[in-house]
Computed example of a mutant assay.
Amino acid sequence: MASEITYAEVKFKNESNSSGTYSDSATAPKVKPTPPLSKPGRPSLLFTSLMALFLLLAIAFLAAFIFYYQKYSQLLEEKIVIKDITYTELNCAKDHSPIEDKVWSCCPKDWKPFSSHCYLISNDSASWRESEEKCSSMGAHLMVVHSQEEQDFITKILDPKANYYIGLSDPGHRQWRWVDQTPYNESATFWHPGEPNSDHEQCVIVNHRYSGWGWNDIPCSVKQKSVCQMKKIYL
């Protein structure tokens, strides 16, 4: 006769008490604790420095791009103006040209040559703004004086009884500016003694006084003669 085997379900509980009834050997298997997820570290100092350098380079590149784009646009506009102007007669001379493969330097008829520019004396009286617009319509601008030699050249062919606008004006706060953006050089100015003398006189004429030829500031609305200037045409 087969003997009966009875299985009993036995549960062990890891429970400590004062009597110490259960031994430590009956405890459940220990589970290894899951290590906490590490937080992403901060960018390294080298990476931060590289990003800052890249940003500065990008800003510098953008500023340079805007500057040269404006210069290019201005040059393109000047070329378009000159291209649309046809001179029926040029007076040319063979001399050393700053442009490769060009041997003739020319000025339109009735314009006076000096150095690398041509000059036209306008005997029509107009305001400073009207005078500049008239010069611009011919591919030129009001005269910009670069040196004593240029000042002497133009005054020798002007009428000492008349006044002539040049391309110097004051947009405000006595910040004198040339129309072609040439920097205003105080060491190459030819003001009459005591001039300029009024904040309300913001345009400049060249005229003759007892002391000789010089500059005088006057209101821009006063109608005067003028001198136009353009670069020589090279062929």
Rank of each mutant, 00 (worst) to 15 (best):
S136H: 06
I218P: 03
L62S: 12
P196I: 11
D101C: 04
N163D: 08
C228V: 04
Q181C: 09
V31H: 07
Q151V: 05
S73I: 08
Y184T: 08
Y164G: 11
Q151M: 14
K13N: 12
D152N: 11
D124K: 09
G167L: 01
W213E: 00
T27K: 05
Q74F: 05
S116P: 04
Y7D: 05
E15H: 02
C92P: 02
V81D: 13
S125W: 00
V144N: 06
H200L: 14
I59M: 05
H141T: 07
E130V: 07
Y184H: 12
S122Y: 03
V227P: 04
N216L: 07
N163Y: 09
Q224N: 09
A126M: 10
S44R: 02
S18L: 14
I5D: 01
L75S: 14
E4Q: 11
H173K: 14
M1C: 08
R209Y: 03
P219M: 03
I166P: 03
E9W: 06
E186G: 01
H146N: 13
L57I: 13
A58D: 08
Y165W: 15
S125A: 08
I233V: 09
P43R: 11
K32T: 15
L75P: 04
N197V: 00
V10M: 10
G41R: 13
H146Q: 07
I59D: 04
H200T: 12
G212C: 01
I233W: 10
C107W: 00
P171N: 08
I99C: 06
Y7E: 09
T189K: 01
W213T: 02
I99G: 12
L53Q: 09
E195Y: 02
G139T: 09
A60L: 13
V31W: 00
T48A: 10
E133Q: 13
Y87F: 15
P29E: 14
K231R: 08
C228W: 06
S221E: 10
E133M: 13
S23H: 13
N17Q: 11
N197C: 07
L45D: 05
S16A: 02
Y184E: 01
K225L: 03
Y164A: 05
Q175F: 06
T88K: 15
L168W: 03
D159P: 03
K11A: 09
V103F: 07
L56M: 03
H200Q: 11
R129T: 12
F47K: 08
L46Y: 13
L56C: 12
K83R: 15
L62T: 13
E195I: 06
Y69F: 11
Y184L: 06
T6H: 13
R177K: 14
S169G: 05
L120W: 09
L53W: 10
M138R: 13
